[in-house]
């Protein structure tokens, strides 16, 4: 390691911010812990011969089940931890890291807890819901891995407020520039001004495709018309065309921005509600197990 020597910038404040992402946190500390937990669970499963066959009601099964249930509750608490800005030496990054790897270890722990006994009952429902939560989490992590860079590139140092402000400013200019136009062309510009450019529902938001965008339609229509007219100097339609062009490109940017943000968030709308369904099913599972014991 090579360092340039500088006088010590002694500070009494501790520096806690090491530059590593939540997946690599402290050199994969939580990945290692999760792997050890999984390894021990698998080894125990293989070494202990439960009669007549492995099941959740055995002593080993109870241990795994208890660990799994407590883990699920703890993992749910990330939602509270994230929002409760209390004092103290905690880092949300460490929590996220642990959340990810311990959450993944549930695949092993819970599957072993079932003893591979599945059926159409509340027990398997809880298991299935848990797997759905984990799958949506994996999907989320892949989004977290892939999209931030694209989000940053697309912004090009503009904030969302600035993008929307730019859009409004172009709309104002369009409104002024359209004053000398005839009714037909003015209506086209009006249609672009009136449309909510981000309407079109969830699908449009997630794909970034807005098939009935009236800005694009208006521009196409104006250009079609222009092809049949003589070229004039200082034609107000030229200014309209360039404004619509600018509006089109800023719309593209905002729509991409909203799409990326939506993709970064949408998985949470699966992950979190199913977590609550899981906790309900889990409670039913635990109560019923003890009730029918």
């Amino acid at each position: 390691m090579l360092m340039v020597k500088n006088p010590p910038s002694a500070s009494r404040r501790e520096r806690t911010s090491s530059h590593d992402g939540f997946l690599r946190y402290r050199n994969f500390r939580w990945a290692k812990i999760a792997a050890v937990i999984c390894g021990i669970s698998i080894a125990a499963y293989l070494m202990i011969d439960v009669q007549p066959h492995p099941n959740g009601g055995s002593a080993e099964g109870y241990v795994l089940g208890t660990i799994g249930a407590l883990l699920i509750l703890w993992l749910t608490l990330l939602g509270v931890r994230k929002r409760a800005m209390t004092r103290g030496r905690w880092s949300l990054k460490a929590w996220t890291s642990a959340h990810v790897y311990l959450g993944l270890s549930l695949i092993v722990i819970a599957t072993l807890h079932t003893g591979f006994q599945f059926g159409w009952n509340v027990h398997t429902l809880a298991y299935a819901l848990m797997m759905l939560v984990i799958l949506s989490g994996i999907w989320g992590i892949s989004m977290y891995g892939a999209l931030p860079k694209a989000l940053s590139d697309n912004r090009e140092m503009m904030t969302e407020t600035q993008m929307l402000e730019a859009l409004r400013s172009i709309d104002r200019q369009l409104h002024e520039a359209a004053q000398p136009l005839d009714q037909e062309n003015a209506d086209l510009v009006q249609s672009s001004l009136e449309q909510d450019p981000f309407g079109g529902g969830l699908w449009a938001r997630l794909t970034g495709r807005y098939s009935n965008c009236s800005t694009r339609a208006a521009q196409a229509e104006l250009r079609r018309g222009a092809a049949f007219r003589p070229k004039l100097a200082d034609d107000p339609l030229d200014r309209i065309d360039s404004l619509l062009e600018r509006k089109g490109s800023i719309l593209l940017r905002v729509r991409r921005h909203l799409r990326l943000k939506a993709l970064l968030e949408i998985w949470l709308y699966v992950h979190v509600p199913i977590t609550f369904a899981l906790i309900a099913a889990l409670s039913a599972h635990i109560v019923s197990v003890f009730f029918y014991w």
Partner: peptide, 12 residues
């Protein structure tokens, strides 16, 4: 615990 912005960042 120090600056809240850093502590509260979920991804580092």
């Amino acid at each position: 615990g120090g600056p809240a912005c850093v502590r509260a960042c979920p991804t580092g």
